[in-house]
Structure formats: structure tokens, C-alpha cells
């Protein structure tokens, strides 16, 4: 019987145990999630990873599908197949030995976990400054990487691509993630209460403008990572977006791409 190699990846205070028979893949995971590996906590969820030889079947362009069937989430994309039983806390992943597939599975699993507690993953850069977290949301080209690159030394970058928002009671916290964008820099594994969500736009001057609640919810929903084709989950995500907007200031931040924009973010 071959030996199992384990690693607990803790993102957002939600450790997930990954098991593989392949020690070199475990090492790859340790490098990929450096800063987010936690051997002290008890993971709530565990996945067995079945590594397969790359084949045309596992390299198709099939888009991601996430469905609930018989109490289990079924996740599939061209490069992976996964199952996850949230009640048992157990799952399995079938993929080749690459970091991209497991990264996508983890993102999806975290969106499913967060939805149950009113949180979400967001297309947003985020940073902590003076003990508060600021989120900068927008799709590709909106300026997430730019604003991250311009961050002053006293700001702690949580991510330049995918922000992790947890809800505990009436408080929202932004947590660091290893999900990097163009900056190719893993975020710091820290968290802080969310101060403001900025919706990014680039323009001729730096300015912050208010948004109506409906516009804020509409923009937020556009940027929340969401994969499942499931009516109940859509309702949860909608509720999460509304309750976030009800409790956290959401503003439009138009900025000129230089350091002065951070003078507005205090």
C-alpha cells in the first residue's frame, strides 16, 4: 500500500486537507501555497487527489460546471473532475499533476463554503491599511493590478486578483489569498475588517463617488465568483451581496494610475 502525503491549505481561516500519493506533487503544493500551509489547525474538509497522466480527455476546453446531485457537489472542467460531500467533509479530485487545476477546485469549494455563511470570493484586489481592509473590484483591465502595484509600503497586499470576504455576525473581514493575478505575487495570509469596497474605473482625476444601493448590488454581483447552477445557491449569493451593501460602504473610485490615489485611501 502506497503512503499518503498530506498538506493543509488554510485560506481565509478555512483549512482544507489535500492528500496525494505523490510526494513530488505534495512538494509542488507546498511551494504553490507557501504562506498558507497550516499544520496546527484541524481541517474541516479533506480531498483525496487522484493524479492521472495528461490525456486529450483531460486537456479539453470544457468550461467549468458545478452541480449539486444527491447531496454532493460535482465539479468538472476540461482539466479536472471533482466531487465534494459538504456534510461528510470529504471529497476527491481527479487531475494531472499541475497547480492550476487544484487552484480552480479550491476557489470553487471556497465559494460554496462562503455562500453558506454570507461571504464570497470577489474579483478584487485588497489591502490592509491602518488596520482596515480596502477592496478594489473590477473585471480584467479595471485596474486591480495597477492599484496593487501602486500600494504604499504601509499597505499589506492581501491579493491583486481574488479577494476573500468572510462574514462573522455583522462584521465582514477580508482575508489574504494565494490567488494571484498579473502581479504574480501571493497575498499575505492576514485579515482585517472591511472598511470600504471600491469599484474601480480609470480616469483623468482621482475621485470617490457614492453609488445607489441597487447599482452597488448590481456591480458586486457582477464581480462575485460564482460557478454553481443551483437555485438555492443563487439566492444565497444575492442575499450575501445585498447584506454586504447594507453594511459596508461601496464607492466608485476613479483614479489616475500613480501613487497619489492612495492619498484617498486612508
Amino acid at each position: 500500500m502506497s503512503r499518503s502525503h498530506e498538506i493543509a491549505v488554510d485560506i481565509g481561516g478555512m483549512p482544507i486537507l489535500l492528500r496525494t500519493q505523490d510526494s513530488s506533487f505534495r512538494q509542488l503544493l507546498a511551494r504553490r501555497y507557501a504562506g498558507f500551509v497550516d499544520s496546527s489547525s484541524s481541517p474541516r474538509f479533506a480531498f483525496d487527489i487522484d493524479l492521472v497522466t495528461p490525456s486529450p480527455e483531460m486537456e479539453s476546453d470544457e468550461e467549468v460546471h458545478v452541480e449539486m446531485q444527491d447531496g454532493q457537489w460535482h465539479l468538472r472542467r476540461g482539466d479536472f473532475r471533482a466531487r465534494w460531500d459538504p456534510r461528510a467533509g470529504q471529497g476527491s479530485i481527479r487531475q494531472s499533476a499541475n497547480p492550476y487545476s487544484i487552484d480552480s477546485v479550491l476557489r470553487i469549494v471556497h465559494t460554496l463554503i462562503l455562500a453558506q455563511e454570507g461571504g464570497f470570493l470577489l474579483h478584487a484586489a485588497s489591502a490592509i491599511r491602518h488596520g482596515r481592509a480596502f477592496l478594489f473590484s473590477g473585471m480584467s483591465g479595471a485596474g486591480k493590478t495597477t492599484i496593487s502595484r501602486l500600494a504604499p509600503p504601509d499597505a499589506t497586499l492581501l491579493t491583486d486578483e481574488v479577494s476573500y470576504v468572510r462574514r462573522t455576525g455583522d462584521e465582514y473581514r477580508a482575508c489574504g489569498t494565494p490567488f494571484a493575478g498579473e502581479l504574480a505575487r501571493v497575498g499575505e495570509n492576514r485579515s482585517a475588517p472591511v472598511d470600504t469596497l471600491f469599484l474601480l474605473a480609470q480616469g483623468p482625476e482621482n475621485k470617490i463617488e457614492p453609488l445607489s444601493a441597487a447599482e452597488a448590488v448590481r456591480c458586486l454581483l457582477r464581480n462575485i465568483l460564482f460557478f454553481a447552477e443551483d437555485v438555492e445557491l443563487v439566492k444565497l449569493v444575492f442575499r450575501a451581496a445585498c447584506e454586504f451593501v447594507d453594511r459596508v460602504p461601496v464607492r466608485r473610485l476613479t483614479f489616475v494610475p500613480d501613487q497619489r490615489v492612495w492619498d484617498l485611501i486612508q
Partner: peptide, 18 residues
């Protein structure tokens, strides 16, 4: 569907096609 009144506006989202 999911619906909510926020800031004096009613927002509705289809859970079928979002």
C-alpha cells in the same frame, strides 16, 4: 427568484438565469 428592498429600491434576481 431572490428579491430584496434596499435603499428604497426593489431588486430582483432570477435564480434560473441570474
Amino acid at each position: 427568484i431572490a428579491a430584496r428592498m434596499l435603499g428604497g429600491e426593489m431588486m430582483i434576481m432570477s435564480a434560473v438565469d441570474s
